[in-house]
Amino acid sequence: MSGTPSRAVDVLRFSVGTLTAIPVRPPSSVEREVTRPAMVLAPLAVLPLGALVTAILWAGRELELAPVAVAATAVAALALASRAFHLDGLADTADGLTCSYDAERSLQVMLRGDAGPAGASALVLVLGIQIGALTSIQHSAWGPLLAGTLVCVSRGAAVVMSLRGVKPARQSGLASSYVDSMSPWTAAASWLLLTGLVAGVFVLDDQPWWRALVCSAVALVAIGWLIRRATRRLGGVAGDVYGASIEVSLAVMLLAAS
Rank of each mutant, 00 (worst) to 15 (best):
S106C: 14
P67K: 11
A91K: 06
A8H: 13
C215A: 13
S216V: 04
A219D: 01
A244V: 03
D92L: 04
D180Y: 01
V214F: 12
A187D: 00
G148D: 02
I56M: 05
V252G: 02
S190I: 07
A76Q: 11
T54P: 01
L213W: 14
R25W: 12
I246G: 00
V126S: 02
A69C: 08
V201D: 13
T186G: 03
W225E: 08
Q171A: 12
P26V: 02
A122E: 03
M161P: 02
W191K: 07
L41V: 07
V68L: 15
V252S: 03
V151R: 07
G89C: 10
G128P: 09
I131N: 00
T98G: 02
S216P: 00
G50Y: 06
D240F: 11
L80Q: 10
V70T: 13
C215N: 11
E104V: 05
G156T: 11
A120T: 10
V40L: 15
L145Y: 00
D180V: 08
G50I: 07
I22F: 13
E247S: 07
R32A: 13
C215W: 04
V40I: 15
L146T: 04
L194P: 08
L192W: 12
T54S: 13
V214Y: 10
G116N: 09
R36H: 04
C152M: 15
V237Y: 14
V30A: 09
A91W: 13
A84T: 09
A77G: 11
L90V: 03
L12S: 07
V160M: 05
P27L: 06
L250D: 01
V126W: 06
V30F: 13
G116F: 03
A118N: 06
S136G: 07
T18R: 01
A256I: 06
T18Y: 08
A169S: 09
G200H: 14
I137A: 03
V46D: 01
L19V: 05
T135C: 14
G224I: 02
Q108V: 09
L123R: 04
A256P: 01
G165F: 05
A251V: 14
D240Q: 08
A79G: 14
